[in-house]
């Protein structure tokens, strides 16, 4: 039990108190951060899995037992180790060209994470810029940008992406650019509404009366105060982008062979799915776990970021 200390001497008016009238906006002490992080189970799981995925992506060349592109025609369709015919040589088996599934899976992490991150960054920049401008200026600017957002929301992402990819031909870069240019809507919607709240905060008025430049006000006064909400959107869009990449690759309009994209691995295995189901199950499960983890992370961050009760 903590005893709140009330010193008997009349402390000066300026003692920074732990008074009642305070709201907890301050960045919490480090111990409190960790407690909150791990007090939230979903968030902890998400963090651990995503952290692992990032480590795997970085160290894939060290971790992978084989070259992911090496074809070994003699060892095609080897089942995973837990299967009767499996071997420790290829822990998760091989595909129809005799490439080691585990190695491809590990290298595939790089593709998924790159896509997720870069797409979220591109769309984040576009969406946040539009949303902040609309929210800050309001009026006509807002009307025009809201119109653009609505137009974008009316487009079916998968169909548009498929159509464009079939025009330009699929590749890793096209997928990233396409998705980056398509997935900014949620960033725009969220940043617009949060900016509308921050715009009328008196500290923004104070900066304006000082004659601070517009970029200063937007970047230094507004952005830090909406960043929390944007990080949450960012995780959601990462997961979204990873799934869409897999979809496009599966449909043959995304990442092209022989790159070890998980979506592509599922597509390449679909002919075997009845008799050798692991060929598609393994990349499918990897995809599921990563996307779930990122979503858990996003949910958790949203809870953490939510304004708590008073004190």
């Amino acid at each position: 039990m903590t005893t709140s200390s009330v010193s008997p001497t009349a402390s000066s008016a300026s003692t920074p108190g732990t008074g009642l009238g305070e709201i907890s906006l301050q960045p919490p002490a480090w111990s409190r951060v960790t407690r909150r992080l791990f007090g939230h189970r979903g968030l902890a799981i998400g963090l651990i899995v995503v952290g692992l995925a990032i480590l795997i992506a970085i160290f894939a060349p060290l971790l992978a037992p084989h070259d992911p592109y090496h074809q070994d025609i003699a060892n095609r369709m080897v089942p995973p180790v837990w299967h009767d015919e499996g071997s420790w040589e290829h822990v998760l088996g091989t595909d129809k060209l005799g490439r080691d599934t585990l190695s491809r899976l590990l290298f595939g992490t790089r593709i998924s994470l790159t896509i997720g991150l870069v797409v979220a960054l591109i769309s984040g920049v576009i969406g946040t810029t539009l949303g902040v401008l609309a929210g800050y200026f309001g009026g006509r600017v807002d009307a025009v940008i809201s119109y653009i957002i609505t137009t974008r929301l009316a487009m079916p992402v998968v169909l548009v992406a498929l159509a464009l990819a079939s025009l330009t031909g699929g590749s890793l870069t096209t997928v990233i650019l396409l998705l980056g240019l398509l997935l900014w809507d949620r960033f725009a919607v969220v940043s617009r509404s949060v900016t509308q709240q921050v715009r009328d905060a008196e500290y923004v008025f104070a900066a304006r009366t000082l004659g601070c430049s517009l970029p200063y006000i937007l970047l230094r006064e507004v952005l830090p105060n909406i960043a929390g909400s944007l990080i949450v959107v960012m995780t959601l869009e990462m997961a979204h982008a990873i799934l869409l990449e897999a979809t496009l690759s599966f449909l043959g309009m995304g990442v092209q062979p022989p790159l070890p994209s998980w979506g592509l691995m599922v597509a390449e295995g679909k002919a075997y799915m009845f008799f050798q189901p692991w060929v598609i199950a393994i990349p499918g499960i990897a995809l599921f776990v990563l996307v779930l983890a990122i979503n858990l992370l996003g949910d958790g961050l949203r809870d953490l970021n939510a304004p708590g009760g008073r004190n």
Partner: peptide, 17 residues
């Protein structure tokens, strides 16, 4: 001065600071 925190055990007259 300011009002004391009411978290935890409050001992003595709360106004004394």
């Amino acid at each position: 001065g300011v009002v004391p925190s009411l978290v935890g055990h409050v001992e003595g007259c709360a106004f004394r600071n």
